[in-house]
Amino acid sequence: MPESAPWEYSLHLPNDLRAVTVSRRTLRLILTMHGLIGLVDIAELLAAELVSNAVRHTKGPAALRVRWAPPGTLRLAAWDADPEPPQPPRAFAHTTDDEDGRGLALVRACADVWGWQPSARDGNRGKYVWCELAAG
């Protein structure tokens, strides 16, 4: 059963593609420990897309923020060092082999809501790209 008190975790990540795996495994542990097993698979997928974009398309560090707000909203946010807005989500094309550019379309399709906001972390300008999932 999910906890009724709010909580938040932040994971600081280097600009390294291995950060995607680290963030997925860490997120799985966090959600499991807080009784949110039902959100693990979709949350892992969304976090992987957000973190992947942060480390693939920028040159600086990144961060993953995981926040639970009762009665049942999970917010995932990836910070990166590029203050420019993310590219708009592209529609899925059934006839293309192009694997790039579909991450935010996947986020848009799977999350209840998503967006981005400019932000600074440790004195560095950047942005958060976030999404929310409702529990239950």
Rank of each mutant, 00 (worst) to 15 (best):
A111K: 03
H12E: 13
D82S: 12
E3M: 06
A81G: 15
R90A: 13
A91L: 08
A78F: 03
M33V: 10
A120E: 15
E99R: 05
R102I: 14
L45Y: 00
T73D: 06
T73M: 11
D98C: 07
A48Q: 01
W114I: 01
R25Q: 15
V20P: 10
W79Q: 11
G103E: 10
L106I: 15
Q87F: 10
C131G: 09
R67S: 15
H94L: 11
R102L: 15
R121D: 02
G101A: 08
E3A: 12
D122L: 05
H57T: 01
L39F: 01
L17Y: 02
T21S: 15
G123P: 08
D16E: 13
A120M: 15
S4Y: 00
A135L: 12
P83A: 11
G72M: 06
S4M: 02
P71R: 07
N53E: 03
D100F: 10
V22G: 02
T32Y: 04
R25E: 15
E44S: 13
V51S: 09
P118E: 14
P88E: 12
A109N: 09
L46W: 02
R90K: 11
P2Q: 06
L36M: 15
N15M: 04
R25I: 11
P6N: 07
D122R: 14
K127M: 11
A81N: 12
A78D: 06
A5I: 09
D41F: 00
N124R: 15
R28K: 14
E3K: 07
W114R: 05
D97Q: 13
D98K: 12
V40K: 14
E44K: 12
A77I: 01
R90P: 00
A54D: 08
A5S: 14
A62G: 11
R108M: 11
D82R: 10
R65N: 12
L133T: 06
R121S: 01
E3Y: 01
P61Q: 04
R102K: 12
Y9S: 14
R67P: 05
A62D: 02
L17H: 09
A109V: 01
Q87H: 13
S52A: 15
H57N: 03
V51D: 11
R65H: 11
H12Y: 10
L50W: 01
M1F: 04
I37N: 12
W79D: 05
I42M: 13
S4A: 08
A105F: 00
T73V: 13
E99L: 09
I37F: 09
A69G: 05
A5K: 14
L13Q: 11
G115D: 14
D100Q: 14
A111M: 04
G136V: 05
L50E: 07
I30Y: 09
R67L: 10
G38L: 06
C131R: 07
P86L: 14
D100R: 15
A91S: 09
L64P: 08
H12S: 12
A19Y: 04
W7G: 02
R25F: 09
L31G: 09
P61H: 02
G123I: 03
M1D: 11
A69Y: 00
H34D: 01
S10N: 02
E3W: 00
T96C: 04
L36E: 03
I42N: 15
A62V: 05
L11V: 09
G101V: 08
T26C: 05
D112A: 07
G123S: 05
P6G: 06
L50R: 05
T96H: 09
